[in-house]
């Protein structure tokens, strides 16, 4: 009981820390949105390019979080991610389009090991969606390791933003 309260408090403080980091630092935010713009460009020119509908379907769910964060060296979903992932699952069951689950790591550690870690994170999201009944053949995990940071700095808050899976 006491533990779960502590845990909730911890999660809330983490969340607020994260939100604070997002809102207090305009330079970080702009870096993030720049990176986001690049990735969208890549998706349209890459092998997913045929799926115009795909991009639309995800964008239409703009009210639901599409980026999910992880602890250092961990690939375990945070409890606060689950509600949004359930909504993604329901939408994918109703409208089975293929999506990319792009896994990322922070810059600490080696690059190829971080590729494996990013894949593990993507796989955790894929597994959760499949447990909700989504057909796994439409879910492709692609790891970018530490190669595509959302925030460029070498700080705890940048690292926290970079350990993520993006649903696209």
């Amino acid at each position: 009981m006491k533990q779960s309260v502590l845990r909730t408090t911890f999660i809330i403080s983490l969340l607020s820390l994260f939100l604070a980091a997002c809102s207090s630092s305009p330079s970080t935010t702009s870096t993030g949105s720049n990176t986001g713009a690049v990735s969208n460009g890549d998706v349209t020119t890459g092998s997913v390019s045929g799926d115009g509908v795909n991009g639309g379907a995800i964008d239409a769910s703009g009210d639901v979080e599409t980026v999910f964060y992880f602890e250092f060296d961990k690939a375990i979903l945070r409890p606060e991610a689950l509600a949004a992932l359930r909504i993604h699952a329901q939408r994918l069951i109703a409208n089975p389009v293929s999506v990319r689950l792009e896994g990322h790591a922070d810059e600490r550690g080696t690059r190829e090991y971080n590729m494996a870690l990013g894949e593990r994170r993507g796989a955790a999201v894929k597994e959760f969606l499949m447990l909700q009944g989504v057909n796994g053949s439409g879910l492709e995990v692609i790891s970018y390791g530490e190669e595509r940071p959302a925030a460029m700095a070498s700080s705890e808050s940048a690292w926290a933003q970079n350990r993520r899976v993006e649903i696209r």
Partner: peptide, 27 residues
Amino acid sequence: SKEPIMSPNWSPDGKELVYVSFETGRP
């Protein structure tokens, strides 16, 4: 490339490289 490039490694004769490129949208 606008997509990541990683892990260059030399051939033993030093005349070629192997590497990872994400240019196809995947590594």
